[in-house]
Design a protein around this nucleic acid. Structure first.
Lengths: 139, 139
DNA sequence: ATCCTATATTGGACTAAGTCCAAGTCAAGA
DNA sequence: TCTTGACTTGGACTTAGTCCAATATAGGAT
């Protein structure tokens, strides 16, 4: 985590209180927050931090490849700090909660040569949808 | 196309001018329009049609499984009328071309019980990324 | 053919997510 | 400690979409 801050400083980032707090919020989470959720958690540590700064900083982290931006269903984007390890996502269609999952098979194998149309396929994103225990209980 | 209208009538749909025009717009072209694009084209044939009706009708068509809702990078949703059988997408990371592909395995099987975290998983979206022949040749 | 009513449509107000900007603040190099 | 350009801020603005009460109408009943 301070690895992250170090990498950013090495790239010429000015290290402000706001940026440090946002990096702390993102650190080590296996559930992915929306920008507003990041803001809500950042406010607990730095009450005057603005939404604009959260958007700015998240955008910069994405541009630097430190954080992955994930969009589902036209809901709010979510920010995945685990950008350096390939993984898939599980999303609750009730509340939008998102978490990382690992698969037993390489999904690239499910796309046969005859369905590749000459593409050189290099990546695959898999997103599972369902209801989380809380939303399943509520309905 | 009149197949579509017939299927809808069989399911108890009341066939209004608005719904007919929206179905015609979706049937016409092979691109995937946003709701606003559908509305713009519908207005050419039925000037007084409202945005609300377009949203309502598209939502109903999606719920009935006649149209597939596709989200791209957090922008407006797009509506894919060619959703007769569930399919996946292959996207060129160079030019953005998107085409439909079919898989040999059910990707739901690749998610083990221990990675479901109590969710009742019902659906999965798979998107492959690569370079199409044209972009591969160009780079 | 006309009536009836559940269903569909409408405009406009409202919400959610995010962008943009001018003015003020501050990290860190000199 | 000074300076300055990068950073932050609140608020106005935009885009995409939802919600609602009032109104209109498709299509079965008579």
């Amino acid at each position: 985590m301070s690895d992250l801050l170090q990498r950013l400083r090495d790239r010429g980032w000015r290290l402000t209180a706001q940026r440090r707090v946002i990096a702390e919020v993102l650190d080590g989470e296996h559930v992915h927050y929306t920008a507003d959720e990041v803001h809500a958690r950042a406010v607990e540590r730095l009450p005057e931090i603005s939404r604009a700064s959260v958007y700015n900083t998240l955008g910069e982290l994405v541009a630097l490849g430190e954080v992955m931006e994930v969009t589902t269903d036209g809901r709010a984007k979510r920010y995945d700090p685990n950008a350096h390890h390939p993984h898939q996502h599980l999303v609750c269609s009730g509340c939008g909660t998102m978490r990382d999952v690992r698969l037993t098979e390489d999904p690239l194998r499910a796309l046969p040569e005859g369905e590749r149309f000459g593409f050189t396929v290099s990546e695959v994103a898999v997103t599972y949808y369902g209801r989380c225990p809380e939303c399943a209980a509520r309905s």
